[in-house]
Deep mutational scan, measured.
Amino acid sequence: MSIQHFRVALIPFFAAFCLPVFAHPETLVKVKDAEDQLGARVGYIELDLNSGKILESFRPEERFPMMSTFKVLLCGAVLSRVDAGQEQLGRRIHYSQNDLVEYSPVTEKHLTDGMTVRELCSAAITMSDNTAANLLLTTIGGPKELTAFLHNMGDHVTRLDRWEPELNEAIPNDERDTTMPAAMATTLRKLLTGELLTLASRQQLIDWMEADKVAGPLLRSALPAGWFIADKSGAGERGSRGIIAALGPDGKPSRIVVIYTTGSQATMDERNRQIAEIGASLIKHW
């Protein structure tokens, strides 16, 4: 067993022997301040990774656009098919120029040779490549099948209805392509620590998230040296922004954090800054 596999296998073990965790309302004060600064709703939840206990939450059962955070769930569904012998990570998928959609920095470079399922998941999570996500959605049967996968996990809230990039439209009061912070946090925890996926697939999923290259201005910008984070960000229309993450000190994750916002007129930089400040408060009061 590799060191990384050992780390993920012992996530519940280490967490069980940690000192009790206590909620700190100071972080919620910052979440509410972010709402004021952005002029928009902000949803927040913080779960203990081992027990699933909610440590703090704000608007945990209000719907927010998922945006690209759905790509972690998508690759979880792909990995479940791999575990069941219905898919192979090494299978190569070929596609054409007509398949390319807006923001496809990886797939646009491989029109000639195609990409493997493993490479597509890596591109979808680490670079948020939209064509990679659409190609992977095709392998599982489309958005409705991802929703069905989530329902089978016990998540009857999260739903995907459309493809990239239309799913980022974020129309107010439109339930399409949305989740709730509580539902997303619980589902992410199941994917990373539950028995739904094999140990190898859980490790692969967290490795992809740990290698995320496009979430630097968010929670990662607030992390002290030595902290662990595996995350996936999302951005959408109407001032929408979000991030889902597993993080913790001492090089291992111990909490799940989900943050979503929508309806702001603020710039992307300002949305990023507010999420980073929430992260800084979380870490300060850990």
Rank of each mutant, 00 (worst) to 15 (best):
H24I: 08
H24T: 09
H24L: 10
H24N: 09
E26M: 15
T27N: 05
T27V: 14
D33A: 07
A34G: 12
E35C: 04
Q37P: 04
G39W: 09
A40K: 04
R41W: 05
R41M: 13
V42T: 12
V42Q: 00
E46A: 14
L47Q: 08
L49R: 04
N50G: 09
N50E: 08
I54W: 14
I54L: 15
E56S: 10
E56H: 07
R59V: 02
F64P: 01
F64G: 01
F64S: 00
F70Q: 08
K71A: 00
V72C: 07
G76E: 00
L79T: 03
S80A: 09
R81I: 07
R81N: 06
R81C: 05
V82N: 09
L89Q: 07
R91P: 01
I93Q: 05
I93M: 06
D99G: 09
S104F: 03
V106R: 15
V106Q: 15
T107K: 00
H110P: 04
H110M: 09
G114L: 04
G114S: 07
V117G: 02
V117M: 12
C121E: 01
I125W: 00
M127I: 12
M127A: 10
N130C: 11
T131F: 12
A133E: 02
A133R: 01
L136P: 01
L136G: 02
L137C: 07
T139G: 13
T139Y: 13
T139H: 11
P143T: 14
L146P: 01
A148F: 07
A148H: 08
G154W: 04
D161N: 08
E169T: 09
A170R: 09
I171A: 15
P172L: 14
P172K: 11
P172W: 10
N173I: 10
D174Y: 02
R176L: 09
A183T: 12
M184T: 02
T186K: 13
L188C: 07
R189C: 09
R189M: 13
L192A: 07
E195C: 13
L197T: 05
Q203K: 06
M209T: 00
A211Y: 13
D212S: 12
V214F: 06
V214R: 13
V214S: 09
L218R: 01
L218P: 03
S221Y: 08
A222Y: 08
A222M: 06
W227M: 03
I229V: 14
A230H: 01
K232Q: 01
S233H: 02
S233E: 00
I243N: 01
I244A: 13
A245S: 10
L247N: 01
D250F: 08
K252T: 10
S254P: 09
R255G: 02
V258R: 00
T261Q: 13
G263T: 15
Q265Y: 10
Q265E: 07
D269K: 06
D269S: 15
N272W: 02
N272C: 05
Q274W: 08
I275K: 02
A276Y: 07
A276S: 11
I278V: 14
S281G: 10
W286G: 02
